[in-house]
Nucleic acid binder design. Structure first.
Length: 772
DNA sequence: TTAGGGTTTG
């Protein structure tokens, strides 16, 4: 009885309603009136069930009409049939290759593959609601068919006789990619074996490349009709003879028994299915599944890889670089190949998202021609890929450390080559599942989490949980991590198209930064008026000291002790040094200096902890112009804001406020001076291949470098550390492709001052993690 | 007719 609209009809056409009329496939065209018609044909090809993105199943099959008496050679009698929904599932489960089916309630569409498959101009589309399929299984159709099918016998390989033509089944133990012969044909060279244990080397010729048997991998099963046995080098070998035809099957137990063939018609019945299943079982015991993935590949080995191409680049006339992935992570340190970014063709966004899952393959010589024709997105099988341990690649990869490089060497020995796998092959279906489950796109798309992570309250706990140390495979030293680096990263193009204010997690390269002189990245900032200013240069400061040289020198007072020195450079000039003993402690000695040059103050600062340069003006002790440092503590010079400070008689202040400790610079105001803070301010040019933008490193810069700007000012080691950090993040003299990928959090914002509402980008919540 | 397997040295 009918299940859905699939009807089992072993008695041929008997169940077809008499109101329906047969329409021959050759007579179908897009104007055909189909409502009261049916099409009858034999299933000559059945593809795997495919789940469409909208959740519905789809199945493609090809049916062919039995050639009838008046058929002309030019007439197309095979047509593609697409069934959808439950009908597709039924088709997959219950209809086999070789079955005869009757289709009603179909719709006709134009076949988009007509140029490729040379089948009917139209395709038949079967929807669950309207269509009905009547099935006459192959086992019965033979009885009702007017053309009795030839009976094939298959000869075990050990029983083949030289000079004889036979039909054989076998398992592929070796094959080479088809190639053009010196004659007129293409040639496929392969070796097959069967349960007899005998191996038969075969040469299959055809003038059309696509007409040769489609072998995807060792272990595939072939069925050859009319293969001729010949003696060559005293061994038996097989060769195509007149009328040769072939079917190929996946050799793995459990995969659909679905023949691949270029034959327009062929016989495939239950007996054949049984033979294939039996061969599969046998092969499974002798050739265990040795599929190798990027996760399991052993260095110094040759292997076959099923993968998807993401990008490619021509390195030279004899070498092409392929960037591929198979959804697994290669645990080895990988060789990095340097390429001009402009030379890369492919999906840059995918390359970014999948960085650690991508491997690079160098393809040489005869394979270059094939590689050039490949398109990113294609599914490939690469045969005899060499996983080679290599001493060094780029300059970063030091020569004493080995990296794993993947090479497809020139030549065809050991079956070396590349094959594009069709999307409906079981290998690709399996690969796609692996890719889908590995792609962070699908698993980490939680913007809510991203936003939550960016609030400072949660940030600390997250920072504590996540390991800040992640070795960058390229640099081996540094990586920039964020507090939420597990969240999916966004593309810069998206960031640029967004409406501010928003926060993003991005992966990008640091193309350049400003200022390039790192000491210039430290600035002075007034927390009160929010002004940022450059640190005055020594020349400017020196002239301010110079101006105050010839003012009268202060006489002694009770709260300090004065010493006078004769200047060593200017005859007759006196330098006054007043020691203020704060809280009677030697350690907190405050030194007021008067009438000294900058150079002299610097020399004094090596001896005395805290120096305040002063001058006398209108009988009051006051500071020099605030463009000069008002407090000098060794190399640490403190400045005040010219706009916000209110400096009057500092003598009065110092006399009364003896408890002031110059060490304590956390105070915002001392001596009426609004203290300026040392801050980092840098501009990073970030680029991820989709866009580039300038982001400032400002409010979170101390966290980023894990250094204080003032330390960078005074400490040579810190300067070197910062220099090294920047050289790691943005190695000088490198091409874009060689730059390391870095992760950043960036925020977009506009400012009120800006009338044009320009968008700014700022780096936040990001820090440089140093390798332990 | 043709090809008839057996690792680059990047």
């Amino acid at each position: 009885f009918p299940i859905s609209k699939y009807i089992h009809a072993p008695d041929g056409d008997a169940q077809i309603p008499s109101t329906l009329q047969r329409i021959y496939i050759k007579d179908l065209n897009h104007d055909s009136q189909c409502t009261d018609k049916y099409v009858k044909g034999t299933v000559i090809m059945k593809h795997n069930l495919i789940a469409l993105t909208r959740g519905e199943d789809m199945l493609k099959a090809v049916i062919e009409e039995h050639a009838h008496q008046h058929a002309k050679l030019s007439e197309t009698t095979s047509i593609n049939v697409f069934s959808f929904g439950k009908l597709a599932k039924d088709f997959s489960d219950k209809i086999n290759q070789g079955d005869t089916i009757v289709i009603t309630g179909f719709r006709l569409g134009m076949s988009p593959t007509v140029n490729k498959d040379k089948r009917h101009l139209c395709q038949i589309e079967l929807e669950e609601r309207r269509a009905t399929i009547y099935v006459c299984p192959a086992a019965f159709s033979g009885q009702s068919s007017s053309n009795p099918k030839p009976k094939y016998t298959y000869v075990p390989l050990n029983e083949l006789k030289p000079g004889e033509v036979a039909n054989v089944y076998g398992i592929v133990t070796f094959f080479k990619q088809p190639f053009q012969t010196k004659g007129t044909d293409y040639c496929l060279v392969l070796t097959i074996t069967d349960e007899s244990g005998v191996k038969l080397g075969c040469s299959i010729f055809n003038e059309k490349l696509e007409a040769l048997p489609q072998i995807y991998k060792i272990g595939d099963i072939v069925r050859f009709h009319r293969i001729k046995s010949l003696l060559f080098n005293s061994k038996l070998s097989g060769m195509t003879s007149l009328g040769f035809s072939a079917l190929t099957f996946d050799g793995r137990v459990g995969t659909p028994v679905c023949p691949r063939t270029s034959s327009k018609t062929y016989h495939f019945g239950e007996e054949d299915r049984r033979i294939v299943e039996k061969l599969r079982q046998w092969a499974a015991t002798i050739y265990p599944n040795l599929e190798i993935s990027l996760a399991t590949v052993q260095p110094k080995s040759f292997f076959d890889l099923t993968c998807q191409l993401l990008a490619k680049a021509e390195i030279s006339r004899a070498c092409v670089l392929l960037k591929v992935w198979d959804g697994t992570k290669c645990p080895h340190r990988l060789l990095k190949i340097l390429v001009e970014p402009s030379a890369i063709e492919g999906n840059m966004a995918a390359i970014q998202d999948l960085q650690d899952l991508i491997v690079e393959i160098l393809v040489y010589d005869n394979h270059v021609e094939v590689a050039k024709k490949l398109k990113p997105g294609m599914y490939l099988r690469i045969y005899n890929l060499h996983a080679k341990l290599q001493a060094s690649g780029t300059k970063e990869q030091t020569s004493n450390e080995c990296h794993l490089g993947f090479h497809l060497h020139g030549g065809t020995s050991y079956g070396r080559g590349i094959k594009v796998l069709p999307e409906d092959s079981s290998d690709v279906q399996e690969l796609k599942k692996a890719l889908e489950s590995a792609n962070p796109e699908d698993t980490m798309d939680d913007l809510t989490l991203l936003n939550a992570c960016c609030t400072s309250a949660i940030e600390n706990s997250l920072n504590a949980e996540l390991s800040p140390y992640q070795e960058d495979p390229l640099t081996g030293g540094f990586a920039v991590l964020t507090c939420h680096h597990t969240v999916k990263s966004d593309l810069l193009s998206n960031v640029k198209n967004s409406t501010p204010p928003q926060k993003f997690h991005i992966k990008a390269k640091l193309k350049s930064y400003q200022p390039d002189k790192l000491y210039q990245s430290v600035k002075l900032y007034c927390p009160k008026c929010k002004r940022v200013q450059e640190i005055p240069d020594d020349e400017t400061i020196g002239s301010l000291f110079q101006e105050a040289l010839n003012l009268p020198v202060l006489s002694s007072d009770s709260w300090y002790e004065t010493f006078l020195w004769e200047s060593s450079t200017d005859v007759g000039r006196k330098v006054a040094v007043h020691f203020v003993n704060v809280l009677g402690s030697e350690e907190h000695l405050l030194t007021l200096v008067q009438g000294a040059t900058l150079e002299e103050v610097c020399r004094l600062s090596t001896k005395f902890e805290s120096i305040i340069p002063i001058k006398f003006s209108e009988d009051q002790m006051t500071l020099l112009d605030l463009s000069a440092p008002f407090l000098i503590q060794g190399k640490k010079w403190s400045y005040g804001c010219k706009h916000c400070s209110c400096v009057k008689n500092i003598g009065l202040y110092l006399e009364q406020e003896m408890v002031w400790e110059p060490e304590n610079t956390a105070e915002e105001t001392v001596l009426g001076v609004e203290l300026l803070q040392y801050v980092f301010l840098m501009k990073f040019e970030l680029d991820d291949g989709t866009a580039s933008l300038d982001a400032i490193l400002w409010e979170d810069a101390e966290k980023f470098f894990q250094m204080l700007p003032v330390e960078v000012m005074v400490n040579r080691a810190m300067q070197e550390k910062m220099q090294m950090t920047m050289a790691t993040l943005c190695p000088p003299g490198k091409h874009f492709d060689e730059l390391p990928w870095l992760e950043f959090c960036i925020g977009t914002y506009t400012t009120d001052e800006n009338e044009d509402r320009s968008v700014y980008y700022q780096i936040f919540d990001t820090m440089v993690a140093e390798k332990l």
